[in-house]
Simulated scan of single mutants.
Amino acid sequence: MLPIWLAAMALGGCVGSGPDGAGPDTAGAGAAPLRGFGVDVDQAIAPRVPVVHLRTCGSWGCHEQDVTLVIAGPTSAVPCPSASAAADTACGVAHLPGPGPGFGYAPVPELTLEQVTVTVTTPAGAPLRVRADLAVRPFAVCPESASCPPSSAAVPQARLRITADGTVIQSR
């Protein structure tokens, strides 16, 4: 499941799912973050929000896209394949099927650290209707840390959260 791996890599995390979604996370530190939005959906409604449409507008214009949301089931530690590793050492994380929160990632190559207006909607006929317009202030992310001061190495990102009642908020 490439979207899981892409989301983890895009958010600059230390781990990412294998390309098929079932393998261990093997991405190392230093993964380059991408400009864009992480989208989280509360577990209570995640099965009813399989996709959202994002329209992001800033001083650079507007960017629109559909974002497929994946339900994140429980995880389990993957043992190391090496016999030299300690018995209690984990070398990765496997994503197991099951209920959990939803998540996705929306790359927005034009995104800057300036405030943008984001419209989040679900398609007609979706099991849960979501429609929200909000002002979002991206934050700076560096390849080696969660956030950093604005610089040439900083990449603008933001996180959106769809709560159990369908409200969309900026989260961090």
Rank of each mutant, 00 (worst) to 15 (best):
L2D: 14
L2R: 13
P3N: 10
P3W: 01
I4A: 13
I4V: 11
W5F: 01
L6S: 12
L6W: 11
L6A: 15
A7P: 01
A8G: 15
A8D: 15
L11G: 15
G13I: 00
G13M: 13
C14K: 12
V15K: 04
V15M: 12
V15G: 15
P19D: 03
P19I: 11
P19K: 03
P19A: 11
G21K: 04
A22N: 06
A22D: 02
G23D: 12
A27P: 00
A29H: 12
A31L: 08
P33R: 07
R35V: 08
G36H: 10
F37I: 03
G38D: 08
V39Y: 06
V39A: 11
D40K: 09
V41A: 06
D42T: 06
R48F: 13
R48G: 06
P50W: 09
P50T: 07
P50S: 10
V51P: 00
V52A: 04
H53I: 10
L54Y: 03
R55P: 01
T56N: 07
C57F: 02
G61E: 00
G61C: 08
G61W: 00
G61A: 05
C62E: 05
H63D: 06
E64P: 00
Q65S: 13
V67G: 09
V67I: 13
T68E: 11
V70N: 11
V70Y: 07
I71D: 11
I71K: 04
A72W: 14
G73N: 04
T75M: 08
S76R: 13
A77H: 00
A77K: 02
V78E: 09
P81N: 01
A83C: 02
A83I: 08
A87M: 04
A87C: 05
T89Y: 02
T89R: 13
T89C: 01
A90N: 02
C91I: 07
V93G: 00
V93K: 08
V93E: 09
A94N: 10
L96D: 11
P97V: 06
G98V: 07
G100V: 06
G100W: 08
G100E: 07
P101K: 13
G102Y: 04
F103D: 00
A106S: 15
P107C: 09
V108D: 11
V108L: 08
E110F: 10
L111E: 02
E114V: 01
Q115K: 12
V116S: 01
V116T: 11
V118G: 01
V118A: 00
T119E: 14
T119Y: 06
T119H: 09
P123D: 10
A124G: 08
A124E: 13
A126K: 02
V130F: 05
V130R: 02
R131G: 08
A132C: 02
V136F: 03
F139Y: 15
A140H: 09
A140M: 12
A140Y: 13
A140D: 08
V141L: 12
C142H: 14
P143T: 13
E144S: 15
S145K: 14
C148Y: 03
C148A: 08
C148K: 07
S151F: 00
A153E: 15
A154S: 14
V155W: 13
Q157D: 12
R159K: 10
R161V: 09
I162E: 03
T163Q: 13
D165N: 15
D165F: 11
D165H: 14
G166D: 11
G166T: 10
G166M: 14
T167H: 14
R172S: 14
